[in-house]
Amino acid sequence: MLKQACLPVRQVQYKKTNMKKIKLIDIAHGRSGDKGDAANIGIIAYDDKGYEIIKKHLTAEKVKEHFAGICKGNVDRYELPNIRALNFMLHNTLGGGGTVSLKHDAQGKTLAAALLRMELDIPDS
């Protein structure tokens, strides 16, 4: 106790724009499948606040970056606000598509879970 009490008080400098990390899997769920060589990943927020976060921060660019090396084409993003969902089309992703692909997951069934691995950096409010 004595030893600790003798330590100098440490000053924590908070940055003005402190960011906090949110795990996508904590605020959303989803499902994925195939459309030819493209994978579709639908992501659904559990509540309105979660939808505001994914709408603002889960951009097509971030998804493309997340799947670097896996998604070899463009990523299109669509909004379904009534059901708090975003739909992503990841083109040129499934190794040629359903019947041609040599991938174990030729139909992209596990890619929604792969996207939920993402962490979003959002300003702490």
Partner: peptide, 10 residues
């Protein structure tokens, strides 16, 4: 909702 967004494009 999960089924609604399954295998859709635009």
């Amino acid at each position: 909702a999960e089924q609604l967004i399954y295998e859709i494009g635009d």
